[in-house]
Design a protein around this nucleic acid. Structure first.
Length: 245
DNA sequence: AAGTCGGGGCC
DNA sequence: GGCCCAGACTT
C-alpha cells in the first residue's frame, strides 16, 4: 500500500495562526525592557506595582532606582517606608510605596522570604489584583496564567469583536476567558509579553497600526472591517500609512 | 456599578 | 479640555 502522506495540506487553525504570528512578531519587534531580564518574583512584583496605570517610560528609571536602594525583598521589608515612598511617590498613585512595603514585610514574616506561587495567595497581597497576580505567575513562575491589562484587553476586544471598553462583569469575564484560551501551552510567559507589546506598539488606543499588524487579516475590527471603531475606512488607513514617512 | 487615586504624555 | 497609561481598592 501507498504510504499515507501527512502533508502540509492540513490547515492550521485560526488560533494556531494567531499564536504563531504574534510570537514571530514579538521575537522580531518586541521591546527590550529591564524587568524582562529577570524571573525574580520580587523584581517582577516591583515592576508590576509601579506599572499600574503608569507608562513604561516613566517606570524604567524608578524601577532601577528602587532595586538599587532595595535589592532584595528583605531590604524592602526593612524600609523605612519614607525611603520607599521617596522613590515611588513621584510616579503618582502614592499608595503603591506602602503596598510594596507591606508586601515585603508579609513575605518575610509569613512566607520565609519567598513569594507565593498561587493565584489566591498572590491576590491576598495588598495592591495585587487579578492582573498583577497573573503577571507574577506567568513571568516569575513560568505558569500559563492569563493576564488582562489595558493592552491585552484592547487587543483581544478588537480582534474578537467585543466592546473592551464595557467594564461589565460579563464582557470582562469573556475577555479573561479569551486571554486564557489563546495562550500556547507551555509558552505563557513569552506569549503574554508578546500580547502586551502588540497592544502597546501595534494595536494602540489611538491610530492603531493595522497595516503593520500580523493578524489584521482575521481581526473583527481592524483593517478588513469596512468601518472600524476609530471611524476610518480601510482605504483611509492605507492613505494614512502612505503619507507618514 | 461607580468613584477614587495622580503625574505625565499626546492630541 | 479629553483621553490614555502593564489596576486595585473602597463605597
Amino acid at each position: 500500500m501507498k504510504r499515507i502522506k501527512y502533508q502540509a495540506a492540513i490547515a492550521r487553525s485560526p488560533l494556531m495562526v494567531f499564536r504563531e504570528e504574534i510570537i514571530l512578531w514579538y521575537r522580531k519587534q518586541g521591546r527590550d525592557l529591564p524587568w524582562r531580564a529577570t524571573q525574580d518574583p520580587y523584581h517582577i512584583v516591583v515592576s508590576e506595582i509601579l506599572l499600574h496605570q503608569t507608562t513604561v517610560r516613566s517606570v524604567i528609571p524608578v524601577y532601577a532606582a528602587f532595586l538599587e536602594r532595595f535589592p532584595t525583598v528583605q531590604d524592602c521589608a526593612e524600609g523605612p517606608l519614607e525611603d520607599i515612598k521617596a522613590i515611588t511617590d513621584p510616579l503618582g498613585y502614592k499608595i503603591r510605596g506602602e503596598w510594596l512595603y507591606r508586601i515585603a514585610r508579609y513575605v518575610m514574616e509569613h512566607c520565609q522570604g519567598r513569594f507565593p506561587d498561587t493565584l489566591d495567595a498572590l491576590m491576598a497581597l495588598p495592591g495585587v489584583g487579578r492582573y498583577t497576580a497573573g503577571a507574577v505567575l506567568s513571568f516569575a513562575f513560568g505558569q500559563d496564567a492569563p493576564i488582562l491589562d489595558t493592552n491585552v484587553n484592547r487587543l483581544l476586544g478588537r480582534y474578537f469583536g467585543l466592546n473592551y471598553k464595557d467594564k461589565s462583569a460579563e464582557v470582562q469575564h469573556r475577555l479573561w476567558s479569551l486571554a486564557e484560551a489563546v495562550i500556547p501551552p507551555g509558552a505563557g510567559s513569552e506569549f503574554n509579553q508578546a500580547l502586551m507589546d502588540m497592544g502597546a506598539m501595534v494595536c494602540t488606543a489611538r491610530k492603531p497600526s493595522c497595516l503593520l499588524c500580523p493578524i489584521s487579516h482575521n481581526c473583527a475590527t481592524g483593517l478588513e472591517a469596512e468601518k472600524n471603531e476609530w471611524g476610518t475606512s480601510a482605504a483611509e488607513e492605507r492613505v494614512t500609512y502612505r503619507n507618514r514617512e
